[in-house]
Write a protein that binds this DNA or RNA. Structure first.
Length: 594
RNA sequence: GGAGAUGUAGCGCAAUUGGUUAGCGCGUCGGCCUGUCACGCCGAAGGUUGCGGGUUCAAGUCCCGUCAUCUUCGCCA
């Protein structure tokens, strides 16, 4: 047996025992006649003390000390040792094993290490580039190990919870067929069928619906999904979702099931009691009040509409915006006017223009309780000043930022501004967690570029029953039976009640400009299945990586993924994607031209 | 596809307005130290400043291009 215990488990109660430990040399301290060494594995660290009492004789003690001096960071060693209580006052409270130390009897080097570019023993982080290139070393860092452990616990809770509620985990294919609706697919060429391709799943959406039709009510899968789109701090080209589908249910049933799961995760992982049911907000409300369908509700700073007042002022930009049916909207920063010098406002204006395409960013401060102060203030008469101050609820010391543009652009700009200011001005405690549902999404939106309707959620989403008739008369107004779960401004998951009626599904395909032939070719199996007793069903998918990131209080999804990819979707460690032999290409009958 | 930031020793960083031999900490190597806790002392080695071009008497510093990493807009049914 190489070891009897891990590096994290020895306590006072083990004192006197002879144990065997294996691990990596974390760091050392040589004091001449006395040396200390910390042995690390993913369970913890244990101190080994090389003193004249080591071994069974002074000669052995000296030999062990010499051996210890030859050790370097990240060497892999095995020690046989006696567990000793540390001398009075020599405990290390920062270490779980800090009450004991090991008196070594035998030491063996199992493997050596080059000087590591990443030092797991120091808290200072190397650049992300180095971390990803030497991920196997970065993963030795206790922070990474904690993050992956937390992720494991969350997934375990998800599996336990769904199992206890009668869910069945079913695996669905990774090699499927491409459905160009939605995100770009990762394609896999077929050798057996030259010129034809599999697609990696963007989600197991259709398979889980087919499982419902097959009668496998209450399906769950921890599913890997792939999307060939550009990355972000919270987006990877391959990611994991907790995929769920249920039959004979209502929206409330699914939300209730997820509320329970969230409460359990919050309780067991963070020790937080969630108030259930989780609050709900309509999409329309979210856009009006926060400018985004995944608002960060940990702080206020709600958007206020000024369009009607703007229509009465002499400031041409505002009046013309209002007259054109666009919007003039504002957010107010409470009590921080002093922090917004002209220079800072200019910088914010430029940032807003460059990132969100607004033409400008207007602002008001208060000169006194009744008078606005701003380069554009003179374009407003006194009653308008008072109206604006009242509408915005401004007090002296507040500053308001106003965007005049289309509804969509003002949403983007004000949401961006709101998030940035909320973070910069520390308007919320980063440790708080805010869960909510966003409901009543529109079912369709018009894609101006492609000049056609596209599904906001996906083409299999059912309209709300009371809105189904709008598909014939006013598709824009039809609301979907869809819902997103939002945590701290992140979309942590989303789902919908699906269409289970063949005719309705065909009608929606028609609205989406998918003609009968294409629908049959791409989704024929679904349309077929819908003719053979499809039960009403619906489900949800939770972003496992994002949930783990949020619960761990981290800013990047990469920190909860063992082997993540860079912003350009490459793997710095393996070099993937790599080139392949001509032989492989020939077998696939692929011709790669640069 | 666009925008911004960054790139200097194995790692993290510094280097006035362009101006001697590019510094500091950690690590590495050598020496000393009997109670340390990533943190004692002394000494040494270690650099094509991402890469290519340009401006200049002189470039880590300015300009152009390029590559990489991060952030972000577009994109992400």
């Amino acid at each position: 047996m190489l070891r009897t215990h891990t590096c994290g488990e020895l306590r006072k109660s083990h004192v006197g025992q002879i144990v065997k430990l294996c691990g990596w040399v974390d760091h050392q301290r040589d004091q001449g006649g006395l040396a200390f060494l910390w042995l690390r594995d993913r369970f913890g660290k244990t101190q080994i003390t090389f003193s004249p009492e080591a071994g069974s004789s002074p000669e052995e003690a000296q030999q062990l000390l010499e051996q210890a001096r030859g050790l370097r960071q990240e060497f892999v060693i095995a020690v046989e040792a006696e567990v000793m209580q540390r001398p009075e006052g020599g405990e290390n409270k920062a270490l779980a094993t800090g009450e004991i130390e090991l008196r070594p009897l035998k030491l063996e080097i199992l493997n050596r290490s080059d000087v590591p570019p990443v030092q797991p023993s120091i808290p200072e982080l190397p650049s992300e580039e180095i971390r990803l290139q030497y991920r196997f070393l970065d993963l030795r860092r206790p922070d990474m190990q904690k993050a992956l452990e937390l992720r494991h616990r969350m997934v375990k809770i998800m599996r336990d919870y769904t199992d206890e509620h009668g869910f069945l985990e079913v695996e669905t294919p990774v090699l499927g067929r491409s459905t160009p609706e939605g995100a770009r697919d990762y394609l896999v060429p077929s050798r057996v069928h030259p010129g034809r391709f599999f697609a990696l799943p963007q989600s197991p959406q259709l398979y889980k619906q087919l499982l419902m039709i097959a009668g496998y009510d209450r399906y769950v899968q921890v599913a890997r999904c792939f999307r060939d789109e550009d990355l972000r701090a919270d987006r990877q080209p391959e990611f994991t979702q907790l995929d769920i589908e249920m039959s004979f249910i209502t929206i409330e049933d699914i939300m209730g099931m997820m509320d329970g799961l969230m409460a359990r995760l919050a309780k067991e992982v963070l020790g937080l009691e969630l108030q259930l049911p989780l609050p709900k907000m309509s999409y329309q409300d979210a856009m009006e009040r926060f400018g985004h369908d995944a608002p960060d509700l940990r702080f206020g700073m709600e958007i206020v509409d000024l369009t009607d007042i703007a229509g009465q002022c002499d400031f041409r930009v505002f009046r013309e915006t209002a007259d054109a049916g666009k919007r003039v909207r504002a957010i107010v920063v409470k009590g921080s006017a002093d922090e917004f010098s002209r220079k800072r406002i200019d910088e914010l204006t430029l940032w807003t223009q460059e990132n969100f395409g607004v033409k400008g960013l207007a602002w008001f401060k208060l000169a006194d309780e009744k008078t606005l102060q701003s380069p554009i203030a003179k374009n407003f008469d006194a009653p308008l000043h008072e109206k604006i101050i009242e509408r915005l609820g401004m007090a002296v010391g507040d500053v308001a930022f106003i965007v005049a543009d289309t509804f969509e652009t003002s949403c983007r700009a004000l949401n961006g501004l709101r998030r940035r200011l909320g973070k910069e001005l520390k308007l919320y405690d980063p440790a708080t967690m805010h869960f909510s549902w966003i409901v009543d999404f529109p079912m369709l939106e018009f894609d101006e570029e492609e000049k056609r309707w596209v599904a906001v959620h996906h083409p299999f989403t059912s309209p709300l029953p009371e809105d189904a008739h709008l598909l014939d008369t006013d598709p824009r107004a039809a609301r979907a039976a869809a819902y997103d779960i939002i945590i701290n401004g992140f979309e942590a998951g989303g789902g919908s009640i699906r269409i289970h009626d063949n005719a309705l599904q065909r009608k929606v395909f028609g609205l989406l400009d998918i003609d009968e032939e294409t629908a049959k070719d791409r989704f024929g199996f679904l349309l077929d299945a819908l003719r053979f007793g499809a039960p009403p069903h619906g489900g949800i998918a939770l972003g496992v990586d994002r949930l783990a990131m949020i619960f761990a209080g981290l800013d990047s999804i990469r920190d909860v993924i063992a082997f993540p990819k860079t912003a350009k979707a490459t793997d710095l460690m393996t070099g993937a994607p790599g080139s392949v032999d001509e032989k492989q290409l020939n077998e696939l009958r692929l011709d790669v031209k640069k």
